[in-house]
């Protein structure tokens, strides 16, 4: 460490810092403009760009909340319900599936595992048509539950949980619980789930973010205005007649859609970035 401190800065270090600053600028500048413009008046926005925020932040926010064409408050609520629901059932049932395959020996164990690995990265869009027809037939179209329930079968989250169990769930613990007379389901809920907490937390965050940002399927499933999630409202905004629109409101709406995720990310960034690498291929 001492040696490092004393030696002169190398050319490669200078280049690395310049490139990193440019990339960081590219990542942050757009959001900076977003925040600035969300706080300015429509007339000022049309006149030219300013580097400093204006004083219209809360007025723009109230304007967005009071616009009955874009029910943002409902949008936030619906997005929270869908994302929270997905995160909860996806992590719980993925852990359950992983535990079933990890802890028990049964004839279908290997085929089941192989099957899940085969569909690990299958895009949901290829079955969207049949999915929509199914929802119509069972009268679940335009229902938020239709966006939540499919999350029970998430192959990628399953694989993450399974890898985590291989590394940190000793079977001796499960056997000890059996000797103490705990039934299998209780063992899973009382012993396994607490041990899986770090893995569940990481996957809950990623599932939440994924559901929060999801646009393709919700846009096709949901038709009632009050049931729409935020991405659908953003799309409505894009489809609106732009000439008559208050731009301050548009920026504010975008800000509302992305701010919750950014805040959570900034609070948990270290944890989340570690989670990214855990979720990838095993080393």
């Amino acid at each position: 460490m001492d040696k490092n401190l004393k030696r002169p800065i190398t050319l490669r270090e200078v280049i690395a810092h310049i490139v990193l600053v440019i990339l960081a600028f590219m990542c942050l500048f757009f959001f900076y403009i977003l925040i600035v413009n969300a706080s300015r008046k429509h007339v000022d926005l049309m006149k030219g760009f300013a580097f400093l925020p204006g004083g219209m932040f809360f007025k723009n926010m109230m304007k967005v909340f009071n616009d009955s064409n874009i029910p943002v408050l409902y949008g936030i609520r619906n997005s929270l319900i869908v994302s929270g629901g997905c995160a909860a059932i996806c992590t719980y049932f993925s852990a359950m599936t992983a535990y079933g395959i990890y802890a028990y020996n049964f004839r279908a164990k290997k085929p089941a595992f192989t099957f899940i690995m085969l569909i690990l990265v299958m895009p949901t869009q290829v079955t969207a048509l049949g999915f929509l027809r199914l929802l119509t037939n069972i009268h679940m179209d335009d229902n938020l539950l239709a966006l939540i329930l499919p999350a029970i079968a998430s192959p990628a989250v399953f694989y993450f949980m399974y890898s985590y169990m291989l590394a940190s769930l000793p079977m001796s613990l499960v056997e000890a619980a059996r000797i103490d007379g705990s039934n299998e389901f209780m063992t899973f809920n009382r012993i396994v789930i607490p041990i899986m907490k770090p893995a569940i937390a990481v996957q809950a965050i990623f599932t939440f973010v994924g559901a929060w940002n999801n646009y393709f399927v919700p846009a096709l499933v949901i038709s009632t205005k009050k049931k729409q999630t935020l991405p659908i409202l953003i799309a409505t905004l894009r489809g609106a007649d732009f000439m008559t629109f208050d731009m301050g409101k548009v920026y504010m709406m975008i800000l509302i859609a992305i701010v919750p995720i950014v805040l959570v990310y900034l609070m948990l960034s270290r944890f989340i970035i570690e989670g990214v690498t855990l979720g990838g291929v095993k080393e």
Partner: peptide, 20 residues
């Protein structure tokens, strides 16, 4: 128990992915 634990996954997959 093994079958029981993996049942929700496969039922969900059957209904919302395989049949579609």
């Amino acid at each position: 128990w093994g079958y029981l634990f993996i049942l929700p996954f496969f039922v969900t997959f059957l209904i919302f992915s395989l049949i579609p």
